[in-house]
Amino acid sequence: MSTLLEVSGVSVTFDGFRAINNLSFQIGKAELRAIIGPNGAGKTTFMDIVTGKTRPDTGRVIWGDKSVSLLKMSEAQIARAGVGRKFQRPTVFEDQSVFDNLLLALKKDRGPFPVLFYRSSARDRERVEELAGEIGLADQLPRKSGELSHGQKQWLEIGMLLAQDPQLLLVDEPAAGMTLEEREHTTDLLVQAAKTRAVVVVEHDMEFVRRLNCKVTVLHEGAVLAEGGLDHVTANKDVIDVYLGR
């Protein structure tokens, strides 16, 4: 399995506080991975670095077959290169319809002029409807997304990510605030997505991680503490110390 994303030796400091400390991380092309860790372990900062929101002080972030560095690219360029990100809180465009939200995310030329002259084709509309079906919002298309429930917004956001057709999906706490059924649906969506692309899920909830049934990376104080199957890492003494010892 070839490597899609390789993060090596990355460190970042905020006002003297080391948020990420010599972190190294790899993920393959079609892999589901969960990242867990206590508060302040650097999970969100790690995603910030990969998506270009935060520039690390040192280290390399290498992407894809051509091994390009992500560090010199803007957020938008990284997104176009195939990294999709879902935020912790659902962020959809609440003032716009579900259809518009998905159309916006659909993989198309992103430049201002092509977008200005873009008119949706029948195929695009079909694709949007298909996606809506996948995320269970097929009958919600004309509604304003602000009117959706919390869970539906989360799915819409995942749907938008899928519409982007990214090679790597970064998902931050997708199950937070969801009912049990919603969680199951979310799990299915992520597992399904990971068949064709890499998916990284940041999660607090061990139960949800167990359901994902994938390799787990434990972050602590900005560095990798342990990596492996969930049972393997939960048996690790360091992990137990970090999670329970204090």
Binding site: F14, D15, F17, A19, T44, T45, D48, K53, T54
Partner: peptide, 8 residues
């Protein structure tokens, strides 16, 4: 400048 995650 305030720097850090919160600043952004």
């Amino acid at each position: 400048a305030l720097r850090g995650r919160a600043a952004g």
